[in-house]
Design a protein around this nucleic acid. Structure first.
Lengths: 231, 231
DNA sequence: GTCTATAGTGGGATAGAC
DNA sequence: GTCTATCCCACTATAGAC
């Protein structure tokens, strides 16, 4: 395992390289926010960061790879905002709604160009897809947040669902993100309305899973998820 | 309203223009299937169709617009396959499962490069987005298919849900498509498993909506959908 | 109204010298 | 790790033929 230098691997980064890398990320996110993704060229990012175009490509294999930096930053900001919510709320609906709401707050400055990175979600070959193995650390961290929504709350639900729910809530979160990306109302008012009302709804629904008549469907769902995972 | 010629508008197409247009579409789909989307250049499409590059752009404003042709073709093929299913089945689960299955069958030859297509479709600013106004006719047609799944079946469900269900089923279909795009199993085995089992599950769930205890959640959901539509 | 030919521009990506 | 030079291709522009 002799080191072929890989600037994408944090372990092989020198201090100098790390500084350059960060300068490029900062420049990119600033320009994306100001002028949008398409209108920001790799040349302008390199200029703004004070490096050559070729050097920018040394650190980021493509323009899309810079989007990963955006993902990561968002993940960190969301986790921070989440702490506050999880420390404050004990009701399941409030914890879930708070977490979803926090994401919308954190993501708001980037709404205008967010569509560009959502493209990645649909392309399975891209390492930037939220379902890719490359995104697994970020995905796991996010799912862990939803696990804490559940753990710290007063929710009672069908036991079989307990281990599946964090991932299902993360999927719900992805659905909210999709809605948000397409939301053109000012301040993403419609998304805020959605998250404010979907959380109590999920709460009610989850509590219903304990009813004997509903158990059949719940078990079918849990079995399906298990079988999909195996196959 | 004197006619500025618009080759995108079917009404203003001459027979000759239509033939040229079709030649370009055929060439594009053939080359996409053989070499993938990215590796197929507009120049090669024009060459293959026997027209100039400029002429290709006369008919299709961008390379992405050619994807719309693919999209339309799939819609037509799915509608055809759907007729057979809807004529044969009367059970709700069978009709729903059959419709979803039919799409997977129709789409299979394009699975390898479908990711590139849907990548473009996932962007909200793109006219190719399934949620865009440009896609509304195709979307409406698709939702109408799901309405027929419901209408011709034996399903009994909460009355408030009846008018909402076709659109919700279409959303489920979009979810299946997303799963399919990411499905790397041979013959999309995992997607086939998913559609085969999700249909009975939805059937059971829909029937549960008639229970008084479940009504509360159903009404909340219906209200939320109505309010989102209004806002 | 359709189409060709040709000559550009802009910007993502790469090669290879240092 | 950083640069300069270059490639490639989507897309535009335009002038004119049929």
């Amino acid at each position: 395992m002799t080191a072929v230098p890989d600037p994408a691997n944090p372990a092989s980064r020198s201090a100098k390289g790390e500084a350059t890398r960060q300068a490029i990320v900062d420049a990119a996110l600033r320009l994306f926010r100001e002028g949008g993704y398409d209108r920001t060229t790799m040349r302008s990012i390199a200029d703004e960061a004070g490096v050559s175009l070729g050097n920018a490509y040394y650190y980021f294999g493509s323009k899309e790879h810079l989007v990963q930096a955006f993902y990561d930053q968002m993940q960190v900001l969301h986790a921070e905002a989440a702490e506050e919510v999880l420390a404050r709320e004990t009701g399941f609906a409030e914890r879930l709604g708070g977490l979803l709401q926090a994401w919308v707050d954190v993501a708001e400055p980037y709404h205008a160009f967010a569509g560009k990175f959502f493209k990645n979600a649909a392309e399975p070959t891209s390492p930037l897809s939220p379902f890719s193995t490359e995104s697994e650390p970020a995905r796991r961290a996010s799912i862990a947040l939803f696990a804490r929504v559940l753990d710290g709350s007063d929710l009672k639900l069908a036991p079989a669902l307990r281990s599946e729910l964090p991932e299902l809530l993360w999927l719900l979160h992805m659905g909210v993100v999709l809605f948000w990306v397409h939301d053109r109302s000012e301040g993403q008012r419609r998304t805020r309305m959605l998250v404010g009302r979907v959380a109590p709804l999920v709460d009610k629904l989850a509590r219903l899973t304990r009813l004997p008549v509903v158990r059949g469907v719940v078990n079918d769902l849990v079995d399906l998820l298990a079988d999909l995972r195996k196959s």
